[in-house]
Design a protein around this nucleic acid. Structure first.
Length: 524
RNA sequence: GACCCCGUAGCUCAGCUGGUAGAGCACCUGACUUUUAAUCAGGGGGUCGCAGGUUCGAAUCCUGCCGGGGUCACCA
């Protein structure tokens, strides 16, 4: 089945055929670019470049630019169009008399459209209306657009006919990027954010590494994995849910600081805070503990906020979020007590369940004490923590890879950073006692046997590594997408991931040569 | 997975107490040599998400399905 082409698509295919008939290649090979829109606008100097009466001859400002035609204003023998390149838009002035015989009337006016990519050579001047403009002396088609571009016009900062359909924007992100400059800016900021983090870590001597995405045993977090298969070895493999266990092997190996920025995959639901594949930073530093890591994260995130937004104070929706150091450090049980009035420390599983029920939560018999505490925290505390806040000292049941607290029995040395009511970072003093780690894994195995699909698998090779001795180590994970949401003021994770996961559209239908045939048929 | 909202031209939308579709931009034809949401005159373009049902008649009412958004649940 062939896709039925719209009137405008037929028109553009007809134009393409006519161009070819005239000997104009609709998809040529190369164009020399010497300037971009924003630099031209910034560097044009009226005193030097603009001709004036009785003045000295202006110094020619010649440029060769390339980009997409975004708007056109055609008059009889001359026309203006806006050309958009990566840096922005600049106006181009075209006159019939400046171009080869017939080009203006037959090619530019009839066969070029909004959305086509062109190259322009010419000189820069300022029009009577005061707009810096490239006067074209040469104009070439560089790529014919066969689909019409949704046109966005603007005047006095008011924008008309903006594409607001989220589905359209996510599925055809390439179009979203063409027509929405603020979307281009979001992903520039995201890149700047990651570059800043990387530089910060590199400057401190930490080694950037790459560990396996395909893993025979998955671990490092509680989540359901994606499962795949390797044919040659005929074995089941998992897409990683975390980098943690491999990075700690590298600490065993003698590197004293390692980090990885990469994708993790979790087979869970989608929401404005969750995408099945997402980007995580994990960092492990030898001879440090979680107190040191709290200082480190504060410094890192304050620095990143300033580099990306220009200020440690960041606007996110209705909130102004301040990454300025220091941030409050609140033990989990204190935070819960403050919000609910209940002190959960030392309470038995059944006491916890009773309290949770009194608070209106649904508790079933399969939930352990750690799970119940987590429920209470997630319901009554987390959503209220808008400013960056360290929540510290978690129940041991929730943290099978964290070291026991040096003073508080039943707890581990772990912190999360909550920002905007959501977890942004997770860190601990890493468990390096191999026997304790084995016991924790075995507890996870019991949970798994009892039906907890998110419980961890026992990783024998990781235990073997620990048995060779891992130094005291502090570890950290940061959700890069969530950080990007806050630093770019976006409400949904889909707005900071270029191609978020969506259900597939109807079967993709090709627009084949049939379209061109239709175009011919419609002419006769 | 549950609930709520949405799906009409390439884009933004109107039409929805039932009488088989409209506007602006975009597109096509013509006019116009400094325009800028260019302007002026004329014109074409739609399986109204899909499939059933009710009805003489459905974009409109009902049911189911598909896709998207949001909230909840799980999770980072």
């Amino acid at each position: 089945m062939k896709r039925v082409l719209s009137e405008q698509e037929l028109e553009r295919r007809r134009a393409r055929q006519q161009l070819e008939a005239m000997g104009i290649h609709p998809y040529p090979y190369r164009w020399e670019v010497t300037a971009h829109a924003s630099e031209i606008l910034a560097s044009f100097d009226d005193a030097r470049h603009q001709p004036r009466e009785n003045g000295p001859a202006p110094e020619p400002y010649e440029v060769s630019i390339a980009g997409r035609i975004m708007t056109r204003r055609i008059m009889g023998k001359a026309a203006f169009f806006d050309l958009q390149d990566e840096t922005g838009r600049i106006q181009v002035y075209v006159r019939r008399q400046d171009l080869p015989e017939g080009f203006y009337d037959q090619v530019f006016k009839k066969l070029l459209d909004i959305g086509d990519i062109v190259g322009v050579k010419g000189y820069v001047f300022r029009t009577r209306m005061g707009e810096i403009t490239v006067h074209a002396q040469r104009l070439e088609l560089l790529a014919k657009a066969l689909r019409p571009l949704p046109v966005v016009k603007e005047q006095d900062g008011k924008v008309y006919n903006v594409v607001t359909d989220k589905e359209f924007r996510y599925r055809q992100r390439y179009v979203d990027l063409i027509i929405n400059p603020e979307v281009r800016e979001v992903f520039r900021k995201r890149a700047r954010m990651i570059t800043t983090i990387r530089r910060f870590l590199d400057e401190r001597g930490y080694l950037e590494v790459e560990t396996p995405v395909l893993q025979p045993v998955y671990g490092g977090a509680s989540a359901r994995p994606f499962i795949t298969h390797h044919n040659a070895l005929d074995m089941q493999l998992y897409l990683r849910i975390a980098d943690e266990l491999y990075l700690k092997r590298l600490i065993v190996g003698g590197y004293e600081g390692v980090y990885e920025i990469g994708k993790d995959f979790r087979n869970e639901g989608l929401s404005r805070f969750h995408n099945p594949e997402f980007t995580m930073l994990e960092l492990y530093v030898a001879y440090k503990d979680y107190y040191w890591m709290m200082d480190f994260v504060e410094e890192l995130l304050e620095h990143v906020a300033i580099e990306v937004t220009g200020s440690p104070e960041v606007q996110w929706g209705a909130h102004t979020i301040s990454f300025r150091r220091p941030w409050p450090r609140i033990p989990m049980f204190e935070a819960i007590k403050e919000r609910t009035g209940y002190d959960l420390y030392g309470k038995s599983r059944d006491e916890l369940a009773a309290i949770a029920r009194k608070l209106g939560l649904e508790i079933d018999d399969t939930m352990g004490s750690g799970k119940i505490i987590d429920e209470i925290f997630g319901e009554f505390v987390e959503p209220h923590l808008i400013q960056p806040t360290f929540i510290i000292d978690y129940p041991i049941e929730l943290s099978p890879l964290a070291k026991r607290h040096r003073e508080k029995p039943g707890l581990v040395e772990r912190f999360e950073v909550i920002v905007g009511g959501k977890e942004l970072c997770n860190a601990f003093s890493e468990l390096n006692d191999p026997d304790d780690q084995r016991a924790r894994f075995e507890e996870q195995a019991r949970l798994r046997a009892a039906g907890d699909e998110e419980a961890m698998q026992i990783d024998e090779d990781f235990l073997r590594a620990l048995e060779y001795g891992m130094p005291p180590t502090a570890g950290l994970g940061i959700g890069i997408d969530r950080l990007a949401m806050i630093l770019t003021n976006q409400p949904s994770i889909r707005d900071v991931i270029l191609f978020p996961l969506l259900r597939p559209e109807q079967p993709a239908v090709p627009a084949s040569a049939d379209g061109a045939d239709q175009a011919e048929a419609s002419e006769s």
